[in-house]
Design a binder for these strands. Structure first.
Lengths: 337, 337
DNA sequence: TCCCGCGATGTAATCGGTTGCAAATGATTC
DNA sequence: GAATCATTTGCAACCGATTACATCGCGGGA
């Protein structure tokens, strides 16, 4: 069962050549004479030979693997980014290894940033310690980023995206606009909150401290924010809310509906991400679309380029977002506007 | 940058021992004398030595990797199973490699089922060709399974689970119960549809052909099924629907709500899977919970056992499901019951 | 005719650990 | 005191490919 796997030696013997020639046929066919090449190839077919990757990797001092560090694998948002990454890596001859940073102890993370384990790293978690990632394998960051870490980044313009959301609500006539932020300290939360504030100011809208709710991107936290909102007097609370993630928006809307209010009649809601689901709930969610698969693809391509050319430029790739208007936003109701 | 990575030789030299001893300290510390071990360990620390996995793997004739074949990485359902798999594999010293069977061409799949690439396989896609998987690396199937493939399986009792759903609706007083099935030919669709029919029969409820709608597990197909349901005369259509996935249930409910009907007032809905989201929509969805992380863990553990003991038993691990009653089901309204 | 160059192939070192076997050392037993 | 044994360590072959360098034949130019 084990030793019956043919090795390069067996192929060489059958073809009547040396292992070197077989190896050349495998990786550099053009240097081998036509005739020899053909006989080697038929010997490969006859023996059913398959290259041993571990051996090749050892010799080449590479692993053929790229590790993606994901904050939470169970989050569908990342699933689609991974899907994009995989679609680039596979054809390029790399394996995608997935590591969940929330599941692993901190120690194991270092193991992944090992040249003997992976040729490169795609970091999707901005909460990792920069020190653990510095000076190890080539890496790129996608979506989130680690402050102080020098690496190419693939991301969106979160500030501008938040501005889009505010503009949409303001254009509809809303003046009291709220925001449910992501986890404190998170780079995305900060950028989106900043964009929210800036645009409010730019449009001369009131920036009421009471209208910023603390969340953490999760469904639950959206629900909790809605509870806060519901507790405010109807005449004072925002007539429209911009949430830093679709998941929170879903939780928020459900809680509001549970109390007998209707969206967008009593409240306009806009989310962030455009996860697949939100176009299929009622009301369908207005949101800012992030090109998730594209982000994954771009990050993977950037990493491959770095691996091949050994460039050291830390450029940012900014991908476009899009305002997707659906049914959860409308002009403020006359009673409350 | 490259050659400054210390090798085992460097550690050996510093510690004044042979490479064999260093290797033993690394993998079999107890056979090395206390004193020697300590000096080797401090030499390791001093040099910053890190084991080269590729070399160890070559010698051990293993790769240290387990491949999970996922039908669609973008589907959150699988994300959580992967998370469970990763949580077992990591501590056991294996890497999780993820391959998306929808993205890859058929050819590449075989590459993954290669002993030189992966030590084992976790198959989550029942639509793969059995022939491509037979006689290759050790594998286990999880959730879905490939008919005719001999392998241990980790799954739930889909028939019984469907029965639970029917029982719940029937107990509430519903007599006209519909079903939205998964993709035709899918093993899960068949089992759930079968369980649905059986339980209807067992309880003496009418099995109306018009009450089985074709779906494919997706949100869109749930919406389409709802359109069919809406097109039926209110007096004839089911008062309750059991859907083979939560995603379809979400699409179904949204479409029904869009037409001004309310759940569960005008229609009871029960889903399948209990994806995280459905407890945070309005109304929260009654559903059958699949222990997804547990399925992942169990599959990984089963595979590890197979790898270690080389057992060849093709046992089935059946994990329990649970009826989760939330707000989307209720007794039929008097007008329609 | 001799030498040089070029293409095709073989030889053998190498990638970096692992491990069967043997040797050395000290302890135990008769 | 010799024989036996357990413990600890080193030697060197090995895992399976890759590749720098050497070799060989052959054709063309001087």
């Amino acid at each position: 069962m084990k030793n019956d796997r043919p090795r390069i030696r067996d192929v060489a013997r059958l073809a009547g050549v040396s292992t070197a020639t077989v190896s050349r046929v495998l990786s550099n066919p053009e240097v081998v004479a036509q005739e020899t090449r053909a006989s080697v190839q038929s010997a490969i077919a006859a023996t059913g030979y398959r290259l041993n990757q571990a051996a090749r990797n050892l010799r080449h001092r590479r692993t053929g693997g790229i590790v993606a560090l994901v904050p939470n694998l169970a989050n569908p948002f990342f699933a689609q980014i991974l899907s994009g990454i995989a679609s680039v890596l596979g054809p390029a001859g790399y394996n995608l290894l997935v590591a969940d940073t929330s599941a692993d102890g901190a120690g194991r993370l270092l193991d992944y940033a090992e040249p003997s384990r992976a040729d490169g790293l795609i970091v999707l978690d901005g909460a990792l310690p920069a020190a653990a990632l510095t000076g190890r394998v080539p890496l790129v960051e996608a979506c989130e980023w680690v402050p102080g870490l020098s690496a190419p980044r693939v991301k969106i313009d979160n500030r501008a995206a938040a501005g889009l959301a505010v503009d949409h609500l303001a254009d509809l006539g809303h003046r009291r606009i709220g925001h449910v932020a992501g986890p404190p300290g998170n780079v995305l939360s900060i950028a989106r909150l900043g964009g929210f504030r800036d645009r409010l100011l730019a449009r001369g809208l009131p920036l009421d401290g009471a209208a910023v709710y603390q969340g953490d991107f999760s469904l639950d936290s959206g629900q909790a924010a809605a509870a806060e909102w519901l507790a405010q007097p109807p005449g004072e609370r925002p007539t429209a809310v911009f949430l830093a993630s679709d998941a929170m928006a879903c939780g928020f809307i459900a809680e509001v509906q549970r109390h007998g209010l209707a969206v967008p009649r009593d409240l306009s809601v806009i989310g962030f991400d455009d996860i697949e689901l939100v176009s299929h709930v009622w009301p369908p969610l207005t949101t800012i679309r992030q090109p998730r698969r594209l982000i994954g693809r771009a990050a993977a391509e950037r990493l491959l380029r770095r691996l091949e050319t050994r460039d050291t430029e830390d450029d940012d790739t900014i991908l476009p977002v899009e305002l997707v208007v659906r049914g959860s936003t409308a002009a403020p109701g006359p009673a409350l506007g």
